[in-house]
Amino acid sequence: EEEEKKKEEIARLLGVSKEDVERILKKNNLDIEQLLRRVQREN
């Protein structure tokens, strides 16, 4: 699934687990696209 791939990509870029990414998304109330763009910009 596309969303899972995005979570895995974010996890890889941040050096965290996919579960961490899911927690970040919930905690910050971000959607996956916003987080992915933010992470890609910083790297």
Rank of each mutant, 00 (worst) to 15 (best):
D20R: 07
D31N: 11
E22K: 03
D20C: 07
N43P: 09
K7Y: 09
K7I: 14
E8H: 11
K18S: 07
L13P: 00
V39D: 02
K5Y: 10
I10G: 02
V16L: 09
A11M: 08
G15R: 04
R41W: 07
Q40G: 07
K18Q: 07
L25K: 01
E22L: 05
R12E: 07
N43F: 08
E2C: 08
G15K: 05
Q34A: 11
L36D: 02
E4C: 08
R41V: 11
I24G: 01
E1F: 13
Q34E: 15
G15D: 05
A11R: 04
S17D: 07
D20Y: 13
E3I: 15
E4H: 07
E22G: 03
Q40L: 10
K18Y: 09
N43W: 04
I24R: 02
A11H: 01
L35F: 05
R23D: 13
E4P: 03
E3K: 11
R23W: 08
L25R: 02
E42T: 10
L14T: 02
E3V: 14
E3W: 08
E3P: 07
L30D: 04
L30E: 11
R12S: 08
Q40S: 10
S17W: 02
E19P: 05
E33D: 15
E33S: 04
N28F: 15
R12N: 10
L30W: 12
V16Y: 03
K18L: 14
L35T: 02
D20I: 13
K6D: 04
E22H: 04
E42Q: 13
R23V: 12
R41T: 12
L36M: 06
V21A: 01
R37A: 15
R37L: 08
N43S: 14
D20W: 13
K5G: 09
A11K: 02
L35E: 03
G15S: 04
K26P: 00
I10A: 10
K6R: 08
V16R: 04
E3D: 14
Q34T: 13
K7W: 07
E33C: 06
E9V: 12
S17G: 07
E4R: 08
K26T: 11
I10R: 00
L14A: 02
G15Q: 05
K6G: 05
I10P: 00
A11Q: 03
L13Q: 05
E9F: 13
I32G: 03
K27H: 12
E33M: 02
N43Y: 07
K18P: 08
E1G: 12
E33Y: 03
K26H: 10
V21H: 00
N43R: 14
V39F: 03
I32V: 14
I32T: 09
Q34R: 06
E8S: 11
V39C: 08
E8Y: 09
S17N: 08
E8G: 09
N43L: 15
I10F: 03
E9W: 12
R37W: 01
I32E: 03
E1S: 13
K7Q: 03
K27Q: 14
I10S: 01
R12K: 12
I10K: 00
S17M: 06
V39S: 07
N43V: 15
Q40P: 02
I32Q: 01
E8D: 11
E8T: 10
R37Y: 02
N28E: 15
E3G: 11
I24A: 03
L35M: 06
K18C: 09
L36I: 07
E4Y: 06
L13I: 15
E42D: 11
N29V: 05
D31T: 15
E9L: 15
E2H: 09
V21T: 01
V16G: 03
Q34W: 05
Q40D: 05
E22Y: 01
K27R: 12
S17K: 08
V21I: 09
L30T: 06
I10D: 00
K6N: 07
E9K: 10
K27Y: 09
A11F: 00
N29R: 09
K18R: 09
K18D: 03
R12A: 09
R12M: 10
Q40E: 12
Q40C: 10
R23G: 10
A11V: 03
D31V: 04
L13A: 06
V16A: 04
K26W: 04
K27D: 15
K6V: 11
N43H: 15
L36F: 04
N28A: 12
R37D: 15
I10L: 10
E2W: 11
R38D: 15
K27W: 07
K5A: 13
Q34S: 13
L25G: 01
Q34N: 09
E8L: 14
I24K: 02
S17P: 06
E33Q: 03
S17A: 07
R23C: 05
E2P: 08
D31E: 07
K27C: 10
I24E: 04
V16N: 03
K5R: 14
K6A: 10
E1L: 14
K5D: 09
E3Q: 13
L14Y: 01
V39R: 01
N43T: 14
A11P: 00
N28L: 15
V21W: 01
K18F: 09
V21L: 06
Q40K: 10
R23T: 11
L35I: 04
E4S: 08
G15H: 06
S17F: 04
E22V: 06
L14Q: 01
K6E: 04
E4M: 09
L35Q: 01
L25T: 02
N28S: 14
I32F: 04
Q34I: 07
E4F: 06
I10V: 14
D20N: 05
E33F: 03
K5Q: 12
G15C: 06
V21R: 00
R41G: 14
E19S: 12
E19G: 08
E4K: 07
L13T: 03
D20G: 05
D31S: 15
R41F: 09
N28K: 10
E8I: 12
E9P: 00
V39E: 03
K27A: 14
E2F: 08
L30G: 05
R37S: 11
E33A: 03
E1M: 13
R38P: 03
E42Y: 04
K5W: 13
K5V: 09
I32P: 13
L14C: 09
E1P: 12
